[in-house]
């Protein structure tokens, strides 16, 4: 049994609830023990780094100092939190700043997608797969911070990443190549410049449709919320019908591994995934 620390972050306690539930569900099936960090606080997200670099570093570092009390890896499902934590790690390496909390930089920080795309886990997934996602055409949408900047993420193929596509293959699904994998959906402006966000979202959804995808898969709670919950609004404005389910990769893992709660997770989506999945005989 692998044991890891777990920092859910704020959105997984709210709009991204099904991401949290599906990660916990999948971890359970793969015998990975998740230990939620005690008394974790917000990583500061974009508002902190837009306002003050010091503030951003300290808000994130507080959580890393808690994580460092155990020897476990830290699993981080929200890519915004992940990116903030890695920034602290880099800051510490450069050694230019004193950090308030006793954090030494010894916590392996793992973004959920990278964590689950690891070779051993993929082998395990293939072995335990009870319901291959045959015939399900997916576009993998990585977005920004899962791959950029590479000095933070360590992803070499940041213009055309493949790891999520590979994971989808292991689940039996059919990942389609498309050129919007790493385009920005503008989620950080969702409350303030909805007009910009709509335009970026429309482009991504309409390209996914053009690629003839049955659904779009992501590991970012901001992208998911943005493309799922606003889809109807985008359709109205664009005069185009997308009807494209926006799924977390962990939900599809749960489906292929036969988790009992998949229906509950998928029931939380605003753009209903049931029709597509039923059509493929997967539900």
């Amino acid at each position: 049994m692998t044991e890891v620390s777990y920092y859910p972050g704020c959105s997984l306690h709210g709009t991204a609830r099904e991401y949290d539930e599906s990660i916990r569900g999948v971890a359970d099936l793969l015998h990975i023990g998740l230990h939620e960090l005690e008394d974790w606080t917000c990583c500061g997200a974009s508002s902190a780094h837009c306002t003050s670099e010091e503030l951003a570093i300290e808000l994130a570092a507080r959580n890393l100092a808690i994580a460092e009390k155990s020897n476990r890896e830290l699993l981080v499902p929200c890519v915004a939190c992940y990116s903030r934590f890695k920034a602290v790690e880099m800051e510490l390496k450069e050694g230019s700043r004193k950090i308030r909390f006793p954090y030494q930089g010894n916590v392996p920080i793992r973004y959920s997608l990278d964590f689950f795309c690891n070779g051993t886990i993929l082998e395990e997934v293939k072995k335990k797969r009870t319901k291959p996602l045959s015939g399900l055409k997916v576009v993998c949408y990585y977005g920004c911070l899962t791959v950029r900047p590479p000095k933070v993420t360590g992803i070499k193929e940041y213009e055309n990443p493949q790891h999520m596509d590979h994971l989808m293959e292991c689940l039996g699904a059919e990942p389609i190549p498309w050129s919007y994998k790493t385009d920005c959906c503008g989620a950080s402006l969702v409350m303030t410049r909805t007009d910009i966000v709509r335009r970026l979202g429309q482009r991504i959804l309409s390209m996914a449709k053009e690629a003839e995808a049955d659904c779009l898969v992501t590991g970012c709670p901001m992208c998911q919320a943005n493309l799922d919950t606003r889809q109807e609004e985008l359709e109205k404005e664009a005069g185009e019908r997308y009807d494209l389910p926006i799924l977390y990769f962990t939900e599809l893992m749960g489906l292929a591994l036969g988790h009992k709660d998949v229906r509950k997770w998928l029931g939380r989506h605003i753009t209903d995934p049931m029709k597509v999945l039923k059509g493929k005989g997967l539900m």
Partner: peptide
């Protein structure tokens, strides 16, 4: 939007 496309 801090997407880092320019930086890379």
């Amino acid at each position: 939007a801090s997407c880092y496309t320019c930086s890379v």
